[in-house]
Design a binder for these strands. Structure first.
Lengths: 240, 240
DNA sequence: CCTGGCGCTTGATTTCCGTCAAGTCGACAT
DNA sequence: ATGTCGACTTGACGGAAATCAAGCGCCAGG
């Protein structure tokens, strides 16, 4: 299978959980109906509400997940990078897509066949468990999103986001913003202006800009306190 | 199986999709590990983040699904009535619960065993498909929730909610609010005061109170326009 | 070097909504 | 009836964020 272009693309991803679960034979079967598709920046690859005839593995680039009418106010839920799946839940359940996906930059995707996938689900329970787990994880993310939107101030959401970009548990750190601030702001449910202002207000907590798209955090611990202050006064509402 | 109390409770629900899919034998097996539990008003039956050892079928009463720390600002996602499932996704996927559930009134639930359920999933693909479909549906609901929260005004959310209570496509209609306005307000992501005010502002669009918990809509079509105005100017973003 | 475009920042103003606080309405029991 | 309690409404106020509108910094192209 060395000279098959599809397989050779996919071989970079053979360590992906999806193919681990599928096994050698299953992987080959699924890739038999697969196709690599190019998505220039701004392409809408899946549309919310459309029947899910395919699902996708991101090979290169970044994809934005969004809900609502694409025209008026696209509300960004998340940005996915290489190695992540799009539409697997809808494909597995035989439901329409629950959200839309659009490329932020020139991207490449592996398009996989939903019908084949469903057929394989009937035989491999581990595959089902895998899909359920991915959906469950996304559901949790969505939930966190929603909770933050309703119960935290803009500043706290921004601080939360910055903290998510570093591994450091405390002390100083420096993070790189992975994409345009416009996109980040949308992801956090606010306007770019508001994002900018919020960032400004965090200067008092040791957050300062350090070059294009770089931000220095003087004290991660203090930031973390700020996030959980006010919003979650009580218990161990640590996570979900 | 006539004198078994669990089965006799469940018999009212044997037409439920879950048991249809399970078949006679499967139903019997699952109910072998089941128990009817009482949940007086205010009982938290499942807690977000806890390991999912059970899932539930609502027999009587109403359960509120919520996210976030229960102490500060419980954000209501949905209210479930008899015949609906709670925690089936988490139970099937072996994940912690993605949200909490609390009884709004004295309720009765059928508690089903997650481990047994998972074992049965391995053998019955239709069961898997069923679970995937229910999760997918909930995901869509969540999405709509989130979209509304971010892109619509309070008035529009209220109008949307009222429209969801009637079958009429146009012309006049009269709806009954199914529970306390406090709960409805929470579901719509606003305070009771704001809900009341929003309802007041809709008077200009032919919405008026007609007795306790009853509301008369003079023109459903006009209301519908109002909802999709401003927020969704464009396409057929009808549903998901 | 200048210039135009674009992403980002900043300021002024308005709108929406949450909060606090008072009032009204209706149900139910004494 | 009458009183009381809880749900609902209404008003006044403040804060957060959206909107409108400049201003700034960086980079590509002339």
């Amino acid at each position: 299978m060395g000279h098959d272009p599809i397989v050779s693309h996919a071989v970079r991803w053979r360590r992906h959980m999806l193919f681990q679960v599928l096994g050698e034979a299953g992987t080959h079967e699924l890739l038999g109906h697969a196709e690599v598709v190019d998505a220039p920046a701004g392409t809408t690859v899946v549309s919310q509400g459309a029947p899910a005839e395919h699902f996708y593995l991101v090979l290169d680039g970044r994809m934005r997940l969004q809900v609502g009418d694409d025209c008026a106010g696209p509300s960004t839920l998340d940005v996915l990078g290489p190695g992540e799946l799009i539409g697997q839940g809808a494909a597995a359940g035989g439901q329409p897509y629950a959200m839309s996906a659009e490329s932020l930059e020139d991207s490449r995707l592996l398009r996989l066949d939903a019908a084949t996938f469903r057929r394989m689900l009937e035989e491999r329970f581990e595959l089902t468990a895998f899909v359920l787990a991915t959906i469950s994880r996304r559901l949790c993310g969505l939930m966190r999103h929603l909770t933050a939107l309703k119960m935290k101030t803009g500043g706290q959401r921004v601080a939360d986001y910055l903290l998510g970009l570093t591994d450091a548990a405390e002390g100083p750190a420096e993070v790189r913003l992975p994409y345009d601030k416009r996109i980040i702001a949308e992801t956090l449910g606010m306007r770019p202006e508001t994002f900018s202002r919020a960032l400004g207000k965090l200067r008092g907590l040791g957050v300062c800009r350090a070059g294009t798209a770089r931000i220095r955090l003087a004290d991660v611990g203090r930031l973390r306190d700020y996030c959980h202050l006010e919003a979650a006064e009580g218990r161990d509402a640590r996570d979900a």
